[in-house]
Write a protein that binds this DNA or RNA. Structure first.
Lengths: 105, 105
DNA sequence: CGGAATCCCTTGCGATACTG
DNA sequence: CAGTATCGCAAGGGATTCCG
């Protein structure tokens, strides 16, 4: 077993990456529909507002879990979101979280 | 695949259980030393204060992830902490978190 | 030894309105 | 369509002090 200090440090950093009210939900939606659009994400994330979706996406992009592809230089824009390789690597973790919830909630 | 709504609901509730700066670290320490004492937890959780350890433990106990066994009715007290069955069921999840951190941070 | 009480600061979250 | 600007509330986190 590794030292407790190493363990808690790594786990805390992982938690920081995905902490927040919306981030895991958004990651999951993008995983299920690569290239999903901003308004699609908004409509499928019950209760989220523009500003929270914008902020959450910005955080995910800066964490290199999500990438953005903006097409067009004038309205109507077409912005598509994808998981990066790093983002995709989180999928098993998200499924583990979901499994625990199914079995223990 | 289950519906996105069900997924996000379950995952959010799991995250709520373990969210916070100290809770997973504390769970891990108790897992590694059943019956660990308050001051042992404090000394092994770098930077935590009395009040934060008290609050975190109270939250974990009310979530039925940790149980407390207080011995004695006057100072010096001996308070011991244990994982409940529910708390132990989180161990694979914590290890998955740690594994992801080792591979991706 | 194992806490609790109080006060305070920072951060996250969100309502509303506006824009290229 | 895909955001941004502003303002404000509430919750989380923490320093300090005190206690049975």
């Amino acid at each position: 077993m590794q030292s407790t200090t190493d363990w808690s440090c790594g786990v805390s950093r992982v938690m920081d990456l995905v902490a927040g009210k919306w981030k895991l939900n958004i990651l999951w939606l993008i995983y299920n529909e690569e290239g999903i659009r901003f308004n699609q994400l908004k409509n499928r994330t019950i209760g989220i507002t523009n500003i929270m979706l914008t902020r959450s996406l910005a955080t995910l992009i800066s964490a290199e879990l999500v990438s953005n592809n903006l097409v067009g230089d004038k309205a109507p824009f077409k912005s598509k979101y994808y998981l990066t390789a790093r983002g995709k690597s989180l999928v098993p973790l998200m499924q583990t979280l979901n499994d625990w919830g199914q079995n223990n909630l």
